[in-house]
Amino acid sequence: MTLHPQIEEALQKLAAANLPPIHTLSPAEARAQMIAVVRARGSVPEPIRRAEDRTVPGPAGPIPVRLYWPEADGPLPVLVYYHGGGHVIGDLDTHDVICRNLAAGAGALVMAVDYRMGPEHRFPAAVEDCWAALRWIAAEAPALGADPARIAVAGDSAGGNLAAVMALMARDADGLDLRMQVLIYPVADYGLVGESFERFDQGFGPLTRAAMEWFRGHYLRAPADAADWRASPIRAPSLAGLAPAMVVVAGCDVLHDDSVRYAEALRTAGVPVDWRLYPGMIHGFFGMTPMIDDAVAAQRVVTAELRRAFG
């Protein structure tokens, strides 16, 4: 599969910046680099009514979240968004434009969760924070002008991993029925298996196999954690009964096979799956609006499906 011309141009600009590979950096350096790259895009989000930072109770202390209200009347459906970054980098600001666009497009109250990350807080800290935040908004939705009966989860990359895990936990919880799970090129298996880890290792953007091994090494406590379904949702004993899924797949991504395998596993388990492949796209393309046409198109597809799921 060849790169889309717009992606080729974006990668040429990235190469001109001469940024060091992620796996050669400290976590602090990698976080700063991601922030700089996102800022350099200069993306302008869709207008919303307002955004508000606050904290919600978590198992190890307050969890920072950001709430986005669209220009719509309530009670609003709710989308809980978990940012990507390998469970090591990324924050509320790196994914702010995505969340604003999803709030505007889906007409939903979006809550972005700034969960604890490795290596300072290793697995399963992120899972625990994400679950606490999801339970909080389910309980507090009416006070926020939202509908607790219409909640979906979404995330990209590591955030897609966490959204998938939240869907599993919600299935087994009382009183929390998700309408949808949106998994954008998710990490499905920290075993890092699949031909795409070799096929798209070099020349297809910053996410390489070495970068994925770096993320895994900083996130998991030990290699054995990869067998835990909370780290690798594809290894859950059963995927039956989960919320309907949309899986967004980048054609030229080391996580391509992860996305495909998880979509197939969900479908085999009887879960309705809307699988969308974007040929020529690389990992991270979903946030590259408005310069990448397929990023704009993918966000519109996601918000349209969320609207349908919310009814």
Rank of each mutant, 00 (worst) to 15 (best):
T2R: 15
L3P: 07
P5C: 06
I7T: 14
E9A: 15
L11M: 09
L11H: 07
Q12M: 13
A15E: 14
L19K: 06
H23S: 00
T24N: 00
P27V: 04
A28E: 14
A32C: 04
Q33K: 10
I35T: 15
V38N: 08
V38A: 12
A40D: 12
R41E: 13
S43L: 11
R50F: 01
D53G: 05
G61T: 08
G61E: 06
I63P: 07
I63Q: 11
V65R: 09
Y68I: 01
W69V: 00
E71C: 01
A72D: 03
P77N: 03
P77A: 03
V78C: 02
V78S: 02
G86A: 00
H87I: 08
I89Q: 01
D91L: 09
H95M: 04
R100F: 04
G107V: 00
G107P: 01
L109Q: 00
L109K: 00
V110A: 02
E120L: 09
F123K: 06
F123Q: 06
P124K: 13
C130A: 15
W131R: 14
W131P: 06
L134T: 13
R135F: 03
R135G: 14
A138K: 15
E140T: 10
A141G: 03
P142S: 04
A143N: 13
D147R: 00
P148A: 02
A149E: 13
I151E: 02
S157L: 04
A158N: 06
G159Y: 05
G160A: 10
G160H: 11
L162F: 09
M166R: 11
A167L: 07
A167T: 14
A167N: 15
A170W: 10
A170E: 12
A173Q: 10
R179N: 02
M180Q: 15
Q181S: 09
P186V: 04
D189W: 10
L192F: 12
E195F: 05
S196D: 09
F197K: 05
D201K: 12
D201V: 06
Q202L: 12
L207A: 02
T208L: 00
T208F: 00
A210F: 01
M212P: 01
R216N: 04
G217L: 02
H218E: 08
D228S: 08
D228A: 07
R230T: 09
A240I: 04
P244G: 04
M246F: 09
M246V: 13
V249F: 03
G251M: 04
L255R: 13
D257L: 05
A263H: 05
A265E: 03
L266G: 03
T268W: 11
W275L: 15
W275I: 09
R276D: 08
Y278M: 05
Y278C: 05
Y278N: 08
H283N: 09
H283R: 06
F285R: 12
F286G: 02
F286D: 03
T289D: 08
P290Y: 12
I292K: 07
D293P: 02
D294A: 15
A295V: 05
V296D: 12
A297E: 13
A298E: 05
R300Y: 06
R300M: 10
V302T: 13
T303A: 12
L306Q: 08
L306M: 10
R307H: 05
G311M: 04
